[in-house]
Design a protein around this nucleic acid. Structure first.
Lengths: 244, 244
DNA sequence: TTATTTAAGTGTCAATAATACACTATTAAA
DNA sequence: TTTAATAGTGTATTATTGACACTTAAATAA
């Protein structure tokens, strides 16, 4: 009886050890918004570092996937507590010509202003408009394309756009962000009606100075409501505008 | 110069070879609908095959991820051309207690009737209602939970429910499917209005016999329109019903 | 001090979509 | 021919969407 179990265990273990293992990488599509354009953070790496690519790294033996993605993001940007969501796993046998590598892609949303103050100089990194990207390494172009689709899909029904803005922001800034994400121009009256109807924003007494004569009121995210709503549908953007 | 490049290449290769490789598995959440209940197909495997688990297998060196998932699905069900979508990649360091394994989970939608005729006897497989599942191996319970969420999310705006029904089906059958997916009861008048307004269904002359006195008309999917619409939003289910 | 400029902020109306709700039609079987 | 069981259909109410234009606030220039 004990013998049977042992045989079984051995068969099990054999099943594992006979398998081919693969390298596992993580790549992050890092979105940022500079007030005008939706941007992606790219770095130089690869052979002689001629090619722009997504920020990436290897999975360590003691790490979970998201944990690894967060570490790699921290190494580049110095940021923690960043919006991070698994996008897709890319595993074409020849996606990396050197050796087969499976890449789990994450997309993340960062506040560019935070990033700029904390960056370490280790990496040659640069923000690119999503509408004007260079040729990317391997299948990173596909990754970015998919990430943009996912961002549009998701931002239409979840308030994740707020992750891209500073703590205090104005409605016109938020509208510009959505304009940039969907590459369109929303009607400001309908937009603010819809956004404010969620009761997710708290109006502050303070006004933005310098940008316009009149100045726009700052708003803050109601974190309590935001958490509660994170997993529900909202439908921010009219379906007809999406054209997906 | 040639020397420099060579050094660089060597450094690159070192970067790869110094990395820990991992086993890569694929697990599939296979949904089916028997006319009444939404079900998941489970198999027995693991130590002494006491535990129900998702159907899974290992990635082969020459396969893409989806290709591997399709192969594994075929091995169990004999089905090809099945709806298959990457769900999520699970990589907790200790999810598999024997050896670290990364699992790319796929969810698939099959027509139970097709399956029943083609099944090979190789696996001990069984359909379980999604509302009455046994304890599952490793993190497979999480996988199923996530798959149900994704199915609900997706079926609300894409006509993927049709993938679960036979070629010819009635509106009451389709409604029962949506009732099962969302664990609720939709109003049949509003439901059929909404479904028919998509113009995605073609009404046949034939009626379903035997189930009800009157008999319901069969419909078929308009494959041309279905393809065209696959990547767009539809919003089948009113937001308020979803409660996600 | 007043006029000018610039963006912020707000309201209404019409069309569409969503929801709630109940009766009639068809067919098989009794 | 009556009964039983499900199929199938319509309307009225309300909520949401989308189109559209003027007023307000404040800094700057005259």
């Amino acid at each position: 009886m004990g013998n049977l179990r042992s045989d079984n265990d051995q068969r099990m273990l054999d099943q594992y050890t006979q398998q081919q293992p693969y390298l596992l990488a993580l790549d992050s599509i890092i979105f940022g918004f500079d007030g005008e354009m939706l941007k992606v953070l790219l770095v130089k790496r690869g052979v002689e570092e001629r090619t722009w690519s997504l920020m990436g790294g290897w999975l360590r033996p003691d790490e979970g996937l998201e944990q690894a993605a967060a570490r790699i993001l921290f190494d580049l940007t110095g940021l923690t507590n960043v919006y991070l969501e698994q996008l897709y796993t890319f595993g074409d046998p020849y996606r990396d010509p050197i050796i087969r590598t499976i890449s789990v892609a994450y997309f993340s949303l960062v506040r560019i202003a935070d990033y700029e103050t904390k960056i370490s100089g280790e990496f040659q990194a640069c923000w690119f408009s999503i509408y004007d990207l260079p040729t990317l390494l391997f299948d990173h172009g596909d990754m970015v394309e998919l990430a943009i689709k996912r961002l549009r899909y998701k931002a239409a029904q979840h308030p994740i756009g707020l992750e891209l803005l500073p703590d205090k922001f104005t409605i016109p800034q938020l509208k510009k962000l959505y304009d940039a994400v969907y590459n369109t121009e929303f009607d400001k009256r309908n937009f603010s009606r819809k956004i404010l109807s969620t009761n997710l924003l708290i109006k502050l007494d303070e006004k933005q100075k310098g940008f316009s004569r009149r100045g726009a009121f700052f708003y803050q995210v109601d974190r309590v409501k935001y958490q509660a709503i994170t997993n529900s549908f909202l439908n921010f953007i009219p379906n007809s505008e999406l054209g997906l």
